[in-house]
Design a protein around this nucleic acid. Structure first.
Lengths: 226, 226
DNA sequence: GCAAAAGTGTTAGAAATACACCCATGC
DNA sequence: GCATGGGTGTATTTCTAACACTTTTGC
């Protein structure tokens, strides 16, 4: 069998961040044709001796300089016409970024990079809108059966942040008491001896996700489920 | 940016079948180096103007002639050293085959093709053992929140077949009464006016999966969960 | 003292689990 | 008539869901 393929392999990343109680997405503005000036997912072609994940990490470093907290392969998009220049498949990843890392993205010197509110995205290049739809679905799903939400919050967070994250992303109201009872019963949150006030209302306790504890429990058959 | 990539793109399929109350896997014996004579997943290189899914379907037709009932993309494997010849990434799919289609695979004229009991797999070429591990995990998971199990059973099946499938694949005992009560309450099984006897014991009723009904309910917010 | 968010328990209904006996057939 | 697998109901426990008042702070 002779192999004479001319398919290029790219990686693209759907980078999620959560700020001001809204989900955001990191996009870059294209400098080149096609879709010149259009917005697109950060990404690029995989080098010949580079793993897929390394390629994503490299592209994110080069294009956005953002600090990734969680990275997971999403899906591979391979429709023959998805790139007008040549045949290219894209292995899409999605990533979570903590709010502390938000400024770093803006400070990049490369192409224009910006965070967009998920509900106010610009037109997107290639099939990137579809990739984002997949990523959003995956994120929303994953929230309910793995504690990925913590990847979108600061190291220390208010319980109400966590709760708001869920009600926002899952787009449904949450009973504060029941939610807190359930999450607390898991025993994967450490309550810190530290409070934070937003200027109004009673100051709230800070919490931290206890990842070690979570993995320990997970190995013993514990299932996170919200 | 200059692109001078020499990465090849392959698809591989993890084809599951269920027979004699055991999960089986379809493997082909390699005729060529590397891993000549070794067993591997059916698959091959994607053509320049062919979608990924079309490539899997084509390879399965060419190599195994098996009738696929369900096909889903699994994961893309891209470690630089996974193919000793050259850089190749594999977009892996997994597929479900109904028992009626078992013989067809054996009747192929191409490379040697065989069903292996999942618990008695031979040594595998490339990183195919890892791909299979992923596929198995996904299948087991998916069984519990989508009615994919029906894709492994004949069009008409005994309720006990369905139950056995679950207890076998999930490797845990199931309470017959509770399981039946729950599955029946979903209203996605049609009970047929037809019985089948295995020669011993009381003949059992045949059932059919009502796919239309399932999708209708799913669109209205119904969640399958076992 | 009042506005604003934090923190906290109880109860009723729903769902999950545990459990055992009779039925229809082949031999 | 006995061995084999098919078919069914109830009671208990556990989990889920609904619901409102008190506390702490800033102004």
């Amino acid at each position: 069998m002779t192999i004479s393929q001319t398919i290029k392999v790219a990686v693209d990343a759907v980078v999620f961040g959560y700020r001001n109680q809204a989900l955001h997405l990191l996009l870059i503005q294209r400098k080149l044709q096609p879709y010149e000036g259009g917005w697109a997912l950060p990404g690029g072609f995989v080098l010949d001796n580079e793993s897929l994940e390394a390629a994503v990490q490299r592209e994110l470093r080069e294009e956005t300089n953002v600090t990734i907290n969680y990275l997971e392969q999403l899906y591979t998009f391979g429709a023959p016409e998805r790139d007008p220049r040549f045949r290219a498949i894209a292995v899409a990843y999605y990533a979570l970024v903590k709010p502390d890392a938000f400024e770093i993205a803006a400070s990049t010197d490369a192409d224009d990079v910006r965070w967009f509110d998920i509900n106010a995205l610009p037109e997107l290049a290639f099939d990137h809108a579809e990739i984002i739809r997949h990523a959003l679905r995956r994120l929303r799903n994953k929230l309910t059966y793995e504690p990925v939400g913590f990847g979108l919050l600061s190291e220390k967070f208010l319980f109400s942040d966590f709760e708001k994250l869920y009600s926002t992303l899952l787009n449904k109201p949450i009973d504060r008491r029941n939610f807190r009872k359930k999450v607390m019963s898991f025993g994967i949150l450490t309550e810190l001896d530290e409070k934070r006030s937003d200027g109004k209302g009673r100051p709230a306790n800070l919490f931290q996700f206890n990842e070690d504890q979570y993995f320990k429990m997970k190995n013993q058959g514990f299932y996170f489920e919200l």
